[in-house]
């Protein structure tokens, strides 16, 4: 018998602090699997955000940096530019980090086509601080700071990051995936791998938005949370490729 599935080497052999059924663990593993498969662990530098995945710097075995809230793309810019040939740089950010406090850093890194990989985990809530409204919380979604449901008249509409960034000339690749089923996990991994491969090939800014769950703060079982993704998140955040410059150029030939 041969081992057909095991913990990737680029993921540290320590328990993660995430709540039971939190999909951060799956996404961490996918990133680590991709790092292993591309053989880039020794040159990869990851940037952790502020939020639930703040301690990601403990979970990946590559060199890591912990960023100020929202600033990961700016730090990644510095790290990448300090040695573009020898650094593979990724940020791992949640929705509050990337689409609220760090929106400027996100948009401008994309506009510059900064040659980095961004893993954007969108679970429509602030998890670490206990379940407040996120820039991606759905209309009507009940959170600690939208106790009567998110009212767009009061606090506007959630932001579709891939769609928004796709209007920029800069970025190379934008795809939205989810991890709520085995089939979707396989697709998510393909997207993450492409986002890293693009960087290796010097193609530029690649962002994978992973629609994710938060059973604890959504107030449901892990199973119900995965179903909630299908029923509520995906209709607002449709899966798919929003930009793929290389594919577009090849199609135009």
């Amino acid at each position: 018998m041969a081992v057909v599935f095991q913990k990737p080497k680029a993921l540290a052999d320590i328990p993660m602090h995430y709540c039971p059924g939190c999909t951060h663990g799956i996404i961490h593993r996918l990133v680590a699997e991709v790092i292993d498969e591309l053989g880039i662990e020794g040159k990869t530098i990851g940037i952790a955000p502020v939020g639930c995945s703040v301690m990601a710097y403990n979970y990946f075995t590559c060199d890591m940096i912990e960023a100020a809230h929202g600033r990961a793309p700016a730090i990644a810019t510095g790290v990448k530019r300090s040695d573009p040939e020898n650094h593979i740089v990724f940020t791992y950010q949640g929705d509050g980090d990337l689409a609220s406090i760090g929106m400027a850093e996100t948009v401008h890194a994309a506009a510059r086509n900064e040659n980095i990989t961004v893993i954007f985990v969108n679970n429509a809530i602030y998890g670490m601080t206990g379940g407040q409204m996120a820039p991606t919380s759905l209309p009507g979604q009940i959170t600690q700071t939208s106790p009567y449901g998110r009212d767009p008249k009061l606090c506007g509409y959630p932001i579709r990051v891939c769609e928004m960034l796709s209007q920029l000339e800069g970025p190379e690749y934008l795809e939205r995936v989810t991890v709520n089923s085995v089939a979707n996990i396989r697709k998510a991994k393909k997207a993450i791998k492409k986002a890293f491969q693009n960087q290796i090939d010097g193609k530029g800014f690649s962002l994978v938005e992973v629609v994710s769950s938060c059973p604890t703060n959504w107030g449901m079982t892990p199973q119900a949370a995965l179903k909630w993704i299908d029923d509520n998140m995906i209709p607002y955040y449709p899966l798919g490729v929003y930009k793929d410059r290389t594919a577009e150029q090849e199609a135009a030939k």
Binding site: I45, I65, A67, T77, A104, V107
Partner: peptide, 20 residues
């Protein structure tokens, strides 16, 4: 040389290079 989008971004780019 990079003109950052803000002072906040600039100091964090500094943080990134200094980290290396």
């Amino acid at each position: 040389f990079l003109q950052a989008e803000s002072e906040i971004a600039a100091i964090n780019m500094v943080y990134g290079v200094s980290s290396t």
